[in-house]
């Protein structure tokens, strides 16, 4: 039973990782690509690390796996925010994007 759960976690995680990589290659501009890398990538790694925690099932490994998952969940959005701001300010080409209000002036694009 635990084996099937682990296999499902590993497969789902692998699938999310695959799609995240494909998204980074295929989607049309930087900011949209970051949607793929932040969300699908974090979820994929989180699922695989959860499978690791279930597989070893001892205190030390569970603690480390949970710590890694939490760390990824905290850092992924921060990293995305920093790259996004830098990309937007450096004026990369955005694909069919409607920019609202005075965002360009406020953010020193």
């Amino acid at each position: 039973m635990a084996e099937i759960v682990m296999a499902a976690l590993v497969l789902l995680g692998g699938f999310f990782c695959f799609v995240a990589g494909l998204g980074v290659l295929r989607l049309p501009d930087v900011l949209i690509r970051m949607h793929a890398s932040t969300k699908a990538g974090t979820l994929g790694s989180g699922l695989i690390l959860a499978a690791v925690a279930v597989y070893f099932a001892d205190t030390a490994t569970i603690t480390r796996a949970v710590a890694t998952i939490l760390f990824l969940l905290i850092t992924a959005p921060v990293a995305a925010h920093m790259i996004g701001r830098a990309a937007f300010r450096s004026g990369v080409e955005l694909w069919k994007t409607k920019i609202e209000d005075d965002a360009e002036r406020k953010l020193n694009r």
């Binding site: 989607l27 049309p28 699908a40």
Partner: peptide
């Protein structure tokens, strides 16, 4: 995100919102 990556056409209509 997966749906948008795997379907052939990009259906995204991106925008920046305040």
């Amino acid at each position: 995100v997966i749906w948008d990556v795997l379907t052939p056409q990009h259906k995204a209509r991106p925008g920046i919102i305040a």
